[in-house]
Computed example of a mutant assay.
Amino acid sequence: MRKYDTPLAIFFTLCSISLLFAFIFNHDLLDWAFARHHNQLSWYIRPIFIIPFCFFAFKRSLAGISFTLFCIFTSMFWFPEPTTVDTIVQEFLQYEVDYLTGDWGLGKILLTLIVPLSLTLLALAFWERNIWFGLSIMAFIAVGKVGWSILFAGDSGKSIIIPATLGLIVCLVFVYLGITRSKRRQN
């Protein structure tokens, strides 16, 4: 399976990039995806993808990492559009859409680059089997998402606190247990 790792990694990376460009150039597609992202099940499932992300980094599988990132990108529209949406959720997601489709200056670009940088650091931590650094980065990502949401979206940003906190707790527990179990098997 190792011989397919790089080609699969390239394939899923190209799929993710294609989806990103599709969202940039097709606002109807972006609106369609965000309408489904109003279903908060997608808010709860997205942090859980950190578990396979860390697992594949620990196993040093670029294909697994890139596949997991593709799943994170697409999971926002896996669930049907909800019939009713809480006002605070609507306000927060409208802020996110406005952020993504608004003007992009240097400050916004640098701030947004924190996302791929933090995911890269998370992957490197587990790739190098530095569990504590990886768990710390994981906590930083969750706290950063909540902080960004509240700082920039105001009160509506508080709607992310419960999904981010529950996701962090589940991820910390499962990643820690999985990796310590894997290490015991190797010894």
Results as ranks from 00 to 15, higher is better:
residue 138 M to Q: 08
residue 174 F to N: 03
residue 160 I to F: 13
residue 99 Y to C: 03
residue 116 P to T: 04
residue 105 G to A: 09
residue 115 V to M: 07
residue 187 N to L: 14
residue 173 V to S: 01
residue 187 N to R: 12
residue 132 W to Y: 14
residue 114 I to M: 14
residue 132 W to L: 15
residue 154 G to M: 05
residue 98 D to N: 15
residue 137 I to W: 04
residue 142 A to C: 01
residue 177 L to Q: 11
residue 97 V to F: 10
residue 126 F to V: 08
residue 150 I to L: 09
residue 116 P to V: 01
residue 125 A to F: 10
residue 124 L to Y: 10
residue 110 L to V: 14
residue 105 G to E: 10
residue 113 L to W: 12
residue 180 T to G: 02
residue 130 N to D: 15
residue 184 R to G: 05
residue 145 K to R: 13
residue 97 V to M: 14
residue 147 G to C: 09
residue 149 S to E: 04
residue 104 W to G: 03
residue 107 G to A: 02
residue 157 G to H: 03
residue 93 L to K: 12
residue 95 Y to N: 07
residue 150 I to F: 04
residue 182 S to W: 09
residue 160 I to C: 05
residue 112 T to L: 07
residue 187 N to I: 13
residue 98 D to H: 15
residue 151 L to T: 05
residue 121 L to I: 12
residue 179 I to N: 05
residue 106 L to F: 12
residue 187 N to W: 08
residue 103 D to W: 11
residue 113 L to I: 08
residue 136 S to H: 06
residue 132 W to S: 14
residue 137 I to K: 06
residue 99 Y to T: 01
residue 131 I to S: 06
residue 157 G to R: 01
residue 101 T to K: 14
residue 158 K to M: 05
residue 100 L to W: 12
residue 137 I to M: 11
residue 180 T to V: 08
residue 108 K to N: 05
residue 113 L to G: 07
residue 124 L to D: 08
residue 116 P to Y: 07
residue 148 W to D: 10
residue 142 A to G: 00
residue 179 I to E: 06
residue 96 E to H: 08
residue 151 L to Y: 10
residue 161 I to Y: 00
residue 176 Y to P: 00
residue 133 F to V: 15
residue 133 F to A: 15
residue 176 Y to C: 05
residue 186 Q to K: 08
residue 127 W to L: 12
residue 131 I to V: 13
residue 115 V to D: 07
residue 170 V to D: 02
residue 98 D to Q: 15
residue 107 G to P: 02
residue 102 G to F: 03
residue 152 F to A: 07
residue 111 L to M: 12
residue 145 K to M: 11
residue 153 A to Q: 04
residue 141 I to P: 00
residue 146 V to R: 06
residue 91 E to I: 00
residue 95 Y to I: 09
residue 162 I to Y: 05
residue 91 E to P: 01
residue 183 K to W: 08
residue 128 E to Y: 15
residue 123 A to M: 09
residue 95 Y to T: 07
residue 131 I to G: 06
residue 128 E to M: 15
residue 154 G to L: 08
residue 146 V to L: 13
residue 163 P to C: 00
residue 159 S to T: 12
residue 163 P to R: 02
residue 120 T to M: 14
residue 122 L to S: 07
residue 108 K to I: 06
residue 123 A to F: 11
residue 103 D to H: 13
residue 113 L to A: 15
residue 187 N to M: 14
residue 110 L to E: 07
residue 119 L to E: 04
residue 153 A to E: 04
residue 150 I to H: 03
residue 113 L to N: 11
residue 162 I to S: 00
residue 147 G to L: 12
residue 168 L to A: 01
residue 156 S to W: 04
residue 183 K to R: 13
residue 169 I to M: 04
residue 129 R to G: 08
residue 109 I to A: 14
residue 154 G to R: 11
residue 111 L to K: 09
residue 119 L to T: 03
residue 99 Y to I: 02
residue 111 L to Q: 09
residue 136 S to V: 05
residue 105 G to V: 05
residue 177 L to K: 12
residue 154 G to W: 11
residue 182 S to D: 05
residue 166 L to V: 05
residue 92 F to V: 06
residue 98 D to P: 13
residue 103 D to K: 13
residue 105 G to W: 08
residue 91 E to A: 10
residue 101 T to N: 07
residue 94 Q to C: 00
residue 136 S to I: 05
residue 182 S to T: 11
